[in-house]
Design a protein around this nucleic acid. Structure first.
Lengths: 229, 229
DNA sequence: CAAATAGTGTCTATAAGACATTATTGG
DNA sequence: CCAATAATGTCTTATAGACACTATTTG
């Protein structure tokens, strides 16, 4: 009955922190439509290869950026007649968070990091998609351990607090923050490891407890009284 | 390249409250696979007719159950090689909440309401889908006005509190509940309308403020300290 | 007026935030 | 010792919950 089949793709919003600004990874497109433009890494499902769309997203991310992200979650599906000039399409979108050091531009030709808060227009509805992913990350960060995925293996509490503040966009009370980290019960100190080097008391290094390597730790109460869930 | 195209469908989880138990609407399937089994209302996208998948979900819900739900939101997309015997498939799932009175079995042949907390195995991965929808509803209910969609046009505060308690599965402090409703600022009293009839002080009837007819009101803090977001 | 439930006032407990103090480093 | 920042103790403020009291109806 339908003349044209529905175009069915996967896109991945790969986020990292540079300085205190959240950035998204964009790739130069090497075929039409929007050839030469920068867009989200994405592509078609390979039914023979991918068990499901999460699988497909992980494969795509790895193929296009060389990254195997420990955190990769479905955002939602964007769809409709208007979003792709080729026809009626859907895109099942996943998002990933990684430390910026993990993104090696030489490993991925045509890769570019753009700050999400001053994004130019992107091909398809990719700007809208990125903004939806950022909103999700900001919202989840206020009651979960999500931002630790933006840090490396080991990090200090002041560093982690700075990461939370960068995402939430507002300062957090130091005592409350440490109480909350304690309550989330996801961190363990790296015995004897301190971050020295500067002219002050060195900070204790922490790492994620094993059980939270691939799972979020959740808190009943939000970090700050922000109203966007 | 791909021998078989990906099977691309929409499913809708329609929820309502009967007594104090959340129920899901299931339809008797009139074609294979799983012919004769009870499954979620769903079907194929009509690219000529539907502007996007939300549109398709609304159409499908209306065609199959006769209901035009004011609240219809995307849950997420289920996918993979294993979930449909016909082949590699995706299902973009939406969920809706309506007052039970709105579901008229005579209007929809083969429709059945099942309590979500004692669900038997369903065709495809529909049981998993229902459980995911219920978890989303429970989680969102703890910090939003979502449960009002399970009430009719007008309702009393004790009734609304009972609806919240039915969804969250635990009693709520009356004073806290009323403070929260006040804070959400989504209700207005229906002037002069009281729910009389019983041998006690009659309760004030309320309705949703106009601006929240099709939008949730959100609170920064959760209703109860439940840890599943 | 007794029973029943609506609606409100107020005290207590808990959690968040402000602020100050101590700790530990390099120079 | 001074500057800088980590880490923690403690007081204040805000929010949530317990409980009791008043209000309004039917029979």
């Amino acid at each position: 009955m339908p003349q044209k089949p529905i175009i069915c793709t996967i896109d991945v919003v790969l986020l990292c922190l540079q300085g205190s600004a959240l950035h998204v990874a964009l790739l130069k497109r090497d075929k039409p439509p929007f050839e030469g433009g920068y867009a989200l890494p994405g592509g078609f499902i390979h039914p023979e290869e991918d068990a499901d769309t999460l699988d497909a997203a992980a494969r795509m991310l790895n193929e296009k950026t060389g990254i195997a992200s420990p955190y990769l979650e479905q955002l939602c599906t964007f769809s409709g007649a208007a979003r792709d000039p080729r026809g009626w399409s859907i895109s099942i979108v996943y998002y990933a968070l990684v430390p910026a050091e993990l993104i090696k531009p030489d490993r991925a030709p045509g890769l570019q990091l753009q700050p999400v808060d001053q994004l130019r227009t992107l091909p398809f509805d990719h700007k809208e998609i990125v903004l939806a992913a950022v909103e999700r990350v900001r919202s989840k960060s206020s009651y979960s351990s999500l931002p630790v995925y933006l840090c490396g293996e080991q990090f200090t509490l002041p560093r982690l607090q700075a990461v939370y503040e960068a995402i939430l966009g507002e300062p957090i009370n130091k005592v409350s923050f440490r109480r909350k980290m304690d309550e989330l019960d996801m961190l363990e100190p790296v015995e004897g490891a301190l971050e020295a080097g500067r002219a002050n008391r060195p900070a204790q290094l922490y790492r994620l407890k094993n059980q939270y390597r691939n799972r979020l730790s959740l808190s009943g109460r939000a970090m700050t009284a922000n109203s966007d869930h």
